[in-house]
Design a protein around this nucleic acid. Structure first.
Lengths: 205, 205, 205, 205
DNA sequence: CATGAATGAGCTTTCATTCAT
DNA sequence: TATGAATGAAAGCTCATTCAT
């Protein structure tokens, strides 16, 4: 078997095992048993358990990020946002159990892993924040704070996915995307479908 | 020292250590060192590492749940929702680093821990769903799917809290609660502050 | 068993195993089997294989150095030198097989070990060199180069000891000490028992 | 490349690697990397790591032994001894770092290696002992014990060489040979340059 | 109850060697 | 003969847990 094929084979096995047992619950022995290779073979292709986890994680991160298309500001915004939401939820649904690697384990491996995850989220969130700010300038996003809102939107993606996994129910990517879109449309998009008043000012506190 | 004090003392030490290092990064040695007691003493009060973690987690879950007051349907709904949001975010902010125990580690310990977490979330989410359904009946919540929406709302709480932790920035509980409330008000609450049209029907799909 | 007794017990076992198999041939499993304790017990008392080796080596170095008494320059020099030679060879003979730890393994463990050994020898050799220089001033040591000579004297101790071990013959400490002393007396000590002429000048080169 | 050239090439690479890292610190991977050949090629030319080490060691042993010329009993003894000393130290100086292979690693590989080394030394030492005994018969060597003395002489060669390496200073072969020769001349050679009295009898014990 | 030394299963990793190409 | 991916035995080490004091 060619070296890169073997590496992919091991990567797939590792992904399965990490998805099933988590980073700490998975042993290199589990991975090589799943891949049906000898222990040493694993170490011919990866530096160790830590590195293969990073590689698996990297694939997941790339998949997610590549599911988001840039917004064309000259076209209708809402359909593009909706398409992106569908794209991401579809990727997450395709990842199946492996989403736990990205959403649960990545943050609990070690300090370095936490830093890598922080960098990933910082990147993703800044894209969302920029999009929100741009939308505000264009008048398609209601004015207001963007940082917490961006994080909330991320949570709207992450949480339903993880909850579906916890509840052992299949993830309906389309339904989730629509639910989030509805939240967005009636919540952050202005215009005929949006809110008439400035949020945070209408109610006495 | 009385037995129950000793237990509380160990529990506090365990909470600190788990918050700093995570479940797998924390050792019983760390906990007893933090509590300044002998190893054996630990096992006089807890069955083991697994159980003390469950106890720490239980306290956190109870704190969060107890921060939510029942909605009085005869009074204004919105201010009550807002108060509850402020209550939860305040509790989470007070938990500080320990939120990682609830939001990150709890789901990666083992299958049993995952089941416990699933039960906790099932409980919490069902309360939100019931509230949403009640609100729909009362006409204060827009009609539509409730399950994914409830999960999204949970994500709106969890994610900003965890992102603040990852970014090593202090959590501004009030600002977060307001941001979520704005999302709610313009997104899921109907009436004068909400959207005029039925979500999901306005845009061609 | 008291902690320090256990440590001594393990140290003795380690010394035996290292003496028999050498640093790399010895495994921690061998040591704990010899000491008849569990693996973990070993790690309660030593940081690891490397450290227990250093501890064993430290004992040997201390034993050797403490076998050498300072020379009293107001008394006869020769008998004191002779007594020191007997002291060292006796210590080395008592060490038995363990001399290989000091004379063979210490230098091949790693760079750090080599540095430690270099420091030990630098210390020991500088004492010999100072003694030679002092002797030259007093007129009891023939004039000439001291550094290589000091190293030769060290070799006169080390080599016969190691050769006896290699030949699997018991080390006759007294006979060795006398042989070295004879070499010294007729070679480096001047006076009636020494050489009459200046070395290196008598023969054409 | 011809088979024997390939073998020499690997042998040279192995010698360098063993000299730098020692037997246990060196891996076959290091050797083939140094020789810039594939792993399998190594095993086409040598049975394994153990054998290539033996081959490297054999070259070193041969070099050292061949540096010693037989003594012509009809000519002056002293200059011949002196020439041999210079020959050996020159060979050792030329070996550079590789002397550690002969002087340090050879004895710590395994029981078989120790036996090989014992045989080498037994051979070398018996030549020295025979020379000493012959010298005694001829009256050019002082009477007395020869075995320990022969070992001491070996130590006078080995130790300064190793100490120079440990101290990371270049080996001055000529100076060392002279120092040893001075020791010999005033210590073991009788006659005009030697000691007047019988060693071991002059001092009260 | 408090203590802390002892336990040992289980982990990650290394590396000399093999063998199909 | 050259190659280099695959092999797997064996190593050092960790740490949750036990139990005699």
């Amino acid at each position: 078997m060619a070296a890169s094929d073997r590496r992919e084979h091991l990567l797939a096995a590792a992904r399965e095992v990490f998805a099933e047992r988590g980073y700490f619950g998975a042993s290199v022995a589990d991975i090589v048993a799943r891949a049906d290779v000898a222990r040493g073979t694993f170490y011919n292709h990866f530096e160790g358990k830590r590195e293969v986890f990073a590689a698996v994680l990297g694939v997941l991160m790339t998949n997610v990020l590549s599911a988001v298309a840039p917004i064309d500001v000259n076209a209708d915004i809402a359909p593009q946002v909706r398409a992106n939401l569908h794209g991401i939820t579809r990727v997450l649904a395709e990842a199946g159990e492996a989403v736990r690697i990205l959403f649960t384990d990545a943050g609990s491996v070690d300090a370095e892993g936490e830093a890598a995850l922080a960098a990933f989220y910082a990147h993703a969130l800044s894209r969302v924040e920029v999009a929100l700010a741009t939308g505000q300038t264009m008048g398609v996003v209601r004015v207001g704070e963007t940082r917490q809102t961006a994080r909330c939107l991320l949570g709207c993606l992450r949480e339903p996915v993880m909850q579906a996994r916890l509840a052992r129910e299949p993830l309906d990517a389309a339904a989730l995307a629509d639910a989030i879109f509805d939240l967005l449309r009636c919540g952050v998009l202005t215009g005929e479908a949006g809110a008439a008043s400035v949020p945070g000012a209408a109610l006495p506190r």
